[in-house]
Amino acid sequence: MSDKAAKRPGSAGSTAAPAEFSFDGTPYRAIEGQTIAAALIEHGIVAWRRTRVNDQPRGILCGIGVCFDCLITVNGEPNVRACMARVEPGDDVRSQEGTGYGD
């Protein structure tokens, strides 16, 4: 098994290119190739959706694209799986309320 060393925020030694993105208007830095979920978790953000019925916070559950619990709005497009979508430079990422369509 080849475990890639995990890097905590601001840790040295990473050679991957950084990617700037924003979450609810605040700028953050990710490493290119990281998922949106991973980039947010690295910055201590573990919830980015509130549920439709009970208005409860959610983050990742399955983490591999199956459960759709981690839905988030990216560049105006709601219901993107944060665990699968990779950060792209300049992404405008927003937490999602319910269905994400303002209904």
């Binding site: 475990d3 995990a6 490493i31 990281q34 998922t35 991973a38 980039a39 690295e42 983490g63």
Partner: peptide, 8 residues
């Protein structure tokens, strides 16, 4: 997936 795929 977080640790192996994204290094987090």
């Amino acid at each position: 997936a977080l640790v192996k795929g994204s290094g987090v």
